[in-house]
């Protein structure tokens, strides 16, 4: 019985063909005389045979692997954070648009700033205002001189205004 217990531990290696010659011969001798161990060995052999002959996975065709590769690439792009690679032409156009987009934005901002600065400069230019003021004063003084007033008399509107125009046109001609 003890012998059978020892043999039982070796039966797997025996059936799997992983025993040395000496052990294999000893075990074969035991199996010739022990029907219980022989039956177990037979059952193991059948199990292994069934496992080996079990319906194998049919080798998938190229269409299967093509689809597999496409799906794998998509999943890999998602995992690595890269966008799914578009066609080269589309990718080039995309790269150009990404390149020019900030340039256009910077140019617009620069133009807006230039217009603003120029407007402010024009509006707040003191020399221009002084020159304009001086011109107005000179014109008023000239008109008063023509009118014989000293700058305190306010010309009435109507006939006086027409008279003033006549005088100017007479002197200028």
């Amino acid at each position: 019985m003890l012998r059978c217990l020892f043999i039982k531990r070796k039966l797997y290696d025996f059936v799997a063909g992983e025993l040395g010659l000496k052990e294999k011969a000893a075990l074969s001798r035991h199996l010739q005389v022990c029907s219980g161990c022989r039956r177990k060995a037979g059952e193991l052999k059948t199990v292994f045979s069934l496992a080996a002959k079990r319906e194998k996975l049919p080798l998938p065709d190229e269409a299967f692997w093509g689809k597999f590769q496409v799906e794998l690439n998509k999943r890999l792009d998602q995992e690595t954070g890269a966008e799914f690679a578009p066609e080269p032409e589309a990718r080039r156009q995309m790269r150009h648009s990404y390149l020019f987009r900030p340039v256009l934005a910077y140019a617009s901002v620069l133009l807006l700033m230039m217009v603003t600065v120029f407007s402010l400069y024009r509006y707040y230019q003191p020399k221009i205002h002084a020159y304009q003021d001086q011109q107005i004063v000179e014109e008023v003084l000239f008109l008063e001189e023509l009118n014989g007033t000293n700058g305190t008399t306010i010309l009435p509107l109507g006939d006086a205004y027409i008279q003033e125009i006549d005088i100017i046109s007479r002197y200028s001609s």
């Binding site: 797997y12 290696d13 059936v15 799997a16 037979g42 059952e43 193991l44 059948t46 199990v47």
Partner: peptide, 20 residues
Amino acid sequence: VKVHLFRAAENLRRKMNVYL
């Protein structure tokens, strides 16, 4: 690994011997 294989084979043999 050999122990796992031996036990697996023994379990399968016991489960399958009804049909074998």
